[in-house]
Computed example of a mutant assay.
Amino acid sequence: MKFFLDTADLNEIRQAVSLGILDGVTTNPTLIRKAGARDFHEHIRQICELVPGDVSAEVTAVDYEGMLREARQLAKIHERVVVKIPLIPEGIRAIKTLSEEGVRTNCTLCFSATQALVAAKAGATYISPFVGRLDDISSEGMTLIGQVVQIYRNYDFRTQVLAASLRHPMHVLDAALVGADVATMPFPVMMQLLKHPLTDIGLERFLKDWEAYLQAQKSAGA
């Protein structure tokens, strides 16, 4: 499974890169605004230079021609850019055209398996089903991930399943168990993957024992 960071914060990205486990980044207009980016294209370029893999940058147009125009501009920023396109009829048209042009796409705002099937047929590079937002309306978001993974395997679609809107470590674990290709998560969730109280207790105990050993050695040599 690939780990993507769902952020536009350069400091968070640098910290994740330093761990050596970051495969890519997903952004959206909300995250770009939150990061305080002054120049959208330049900010995306900076992210691309930090990470080793794909960086999703989203169009804001909702019409076919507008999405194509923005997508082509975004794709020129850096070879790592993957263009996020909303899962609407005009978006599917745009994904099909962009796929034929060799522009990679991330079809976003997916909430059903039939939507994911259509996106794959259009040639999307990634599909982004939103787990947390489905949970918010008393639906099983992770069930959708499993359905999409199974459908894509049934028909050998090359579209990668990118589990999005992951809000806690169990979301990441469940996405891995059902076979999602990518998990994109906020920085705090990525850090929580490393945490366990028994690890902290065990480390504290080892360090105390080591300190006691050193003191004993010191006393023996006195």
Rank of each mutant, 00 (worst) to 15 (best):
D54H: 15
V81F: 07
V51Q: 09
M185Q: 06
G132E: 04
L87V: 08
A116E: 02
Q15L: 12
A120N: 04
A120K: 02
R153V: 04
R93N: 06
Y152D: 03
A183V: 05
E65N: 14
V103D: 03
Y152S: 00
E204R: 08
K208M: 08
A113N: 11
T108C: 03
V178W: 04
V178A: 05
V62P: 00
E211P: 02
T105A: 02
M142N: 05
A113V: 10
P188L: 07
H168E: 14
A75R: 09
G179Q: 12
R104L: 08
K2S: 14
V182S: 01
C110H: 03
R38W: 07
E42F: 15
V131F: 02
Y155Q: 04
Y152G: 01
D136Y: 07
T105N: 00
T114L: 12
L109R: 04
L19T: 15
R14K: 13
S219Q: 09
E204S: 09
T125S: 10
L10Y: 11
A37C: 15
R38K: 15
T108K: 02
M67L: 11
V148W: 04
D174A: 12
L173Q: 06
A180D: 06
W210T: 13
I92G: 01
R45E: 12
E100L: 06
G36M: 15
A8V: 06
E49H: 14
V83H: 00
Q215W: 05
N106A: 09
R80G: 01
A120C: 11
E79R: 14
A119Y: 00
L134I: 07
H43F: 15
L10G: 13
E79V: 12
K76A: 12
T60D: 04
L31V: 08
R14D: 13
G123M: 05
L74K: 03
L173P: 03
R153F: 12
V55I: 14
G20R: 15
T105Y: 00
I201K: 11
T30D: 13
L166H: 04
R158I: 14
T143C: 09
L5F: 05
R167Y: 08
K34S: 13
S138Q: 12
P188R: 10
P197K: 11
L177I: 07
M191N: 08
A35L: 14
L194P: 03
A16N: 05
G132M: 06
K84N: 03
I151R: 08
A175Y: 01
T60E: 14
V189P: 02
W210V: 08
E79L: 12
F157P: 00
E58F: 02
L134A: 06
A113H: 05
E12G: 13
C48V: 10
A175Q: 03
G91L: 01
S112K: 07
G20C: 13
L31F: 13
A124Y: 02
P169D: 08
G221P: 00
S219V: 11
L194M: 05
A8Y: 06
Q217Y: 04
L144G: 02
R72P: 15
F3R: 14
I95D: 00
E211L: 15
M185T: 01
V83D: 00
M1D: 11
E58S: 07
M142W: 02
V178M: 10
D136R: 05
R14P: 09
G20D: 11
A124P: 00
Y213M: 06
A71Q: 06
K218S: 08
A222H: 06
